[in-house]
Write a protein that binds this DNA or RNA. Structure first.
Lengths: 225, 225
DNA sequence: CCATCAAGTAACTGTTTAGTTACCGGATCG
DNA sequence: CGATCCGGTAACTAAACAGTTACTTGATGG
């Protein structure tokens, strides 16, 4: 393409000419690092994650990682923030207030379970962050307002249900959300020890479907009048 | 397994006074290492735990740690096994079949919640082990039979409740246990991120008591006819 | 009273790790 | 055309790490 004069191939590369990217794509490199870091941190935790491994998974090297993200801790925080933004964004798109209160809560329970199921790396990151007592999350300014919306919307749905007489008066929005999240989180994040000690594979489709129905059932019976 | 003086033992007070010699105490050193390791692994995970730190916390050094436990991984497995033995042993002492089915289940829920509350290191260890997909737990032979008893006893109580017409026919022992464990585990193990994003301290006594009542309420309403 | 054995100490070793530095090469603009 | 950014590479460094070895200390038994 751009031979700039056309005088032969100087192209004296020190490396054996592997099929190199040839094109510079800062955005893609950055995204690749973030994606690789998400997987590495999810699989190995903060202590176990290796910066070299992240660079290799991203198809780049450490220099770029430090260039874009500063250091290991800042990269980790970015990964965590992106993970939270991901679930809360998808959650908002549900608009649980558009249906009947009962359907709305059931919908939120289903969504949460399925999101957890499809994003095991999110659960892992939460586990890691809690092991460290939210050391990095606490430093994040971006995330506070992200969650007030959830509780607000949930609170509206519950109020409506109480007015209609289908929900008990003591139903609390935070408790409802924690119930839904608990049932999904524990089953999936602890699947390995549970499957081992109880001697059955919790990830078989039959069991997954049964647990999905169970979550909706438990959530609704706990607040229905 | 230190069977000092197996055959032909004189047994004539080989050690004059066992209590006096505080300098050397293999049993205590061993126990101190196990205790220190439990805390270190719970606080930092498998990847983040430092062998030097364990030795220092135990008031001894690495040489003794390797002498008694082989290596870091074997020590970790011992810690994990002891943690499981701890909760299952306490659980058995409950005898949930002695009360009415409803009281029995409520009792199990209360016990589990309070045990989790008093043993945060157990929750941490579970989290770490699951991060590694039960890599070490799978190798343990000791633990399989420890859990069949739990499900068996729970199954009996549920059957009795069904016969008496107080529980629904679809109530499943594993599901009931997972429900109880989920609600306790998630609240406590994720307390740091949850407290941060929702802006209230979940460990305040008021909130703890409310969640305790919530667990019992959810568990029982989900299986009551 | 010396040989032996076990509990315990501390310094050492080879490897791994986060983070840095020196350098390369192409695109862009004066 | 050539200076100069900027995306990118590879080799390096200082520290930290798991695991080992050489040694000390003290009790016991022949």
């Amino acid at each position: 393409m751009n031979d700039s004069g056309g005088n032969g191939e100087k192209k004296r590369s020190r490396r054996p000419s592997t099929e190199r990217t040839a094109q510079r794509d800062p955005e893609r490199t950055r995204a690749a690092i973030l994606d690789a870091a998400t997987r590495e941190f999810a699989e190995n935790g903060m202590g176990g994650a290796r910066v070299d491994a992240i660079a290799e998974r991203a198809g780049t090297n450490k220099r770029m990682l430090y260039h874009y993200f500063g250091d290991k801790e800042q990269l980790y925080l970015r990964v965590l923030e992106e993970a939270y933004v991901g679930i809360r964004t998808a959650e908002r798109a549900l608009h649980i207030g558009d249906r009947s209160p009962e359907e709305g809560i059931g919908e939120l329970a289903l969504f949460t379970w399925r999101y957890f199921l499809q994003h095991p790396e999110f659960l892992s990151l939460l586990g890691t962050e809690n092991l460290h007592r939210a050391r990095w999350l606490r430093q994040s300014v971006r995330l506070k307002e992200l969650h007030s919306h959830l509780i607000g919307e949930l609170s509206d749905v519950l109020e409506q249900g109480k007015k209609q007489g289908v929900f008990i008066e003591t139903a609390d929005p935070l408790h409802v959300y924690l119930t839904i999240a608990s049932l999904g989180y524990f089953y999936l994040s602890n699947q390995y020890t549970l499957s081992t000690i109880f001697g059955r594979d919790l990830m078989e489709p039959t069991h997954l479907n049964a647990w999905e129905r169970h979550i909706v059932h438990v959530t609704l019976t706990s607040i229905k009048r």
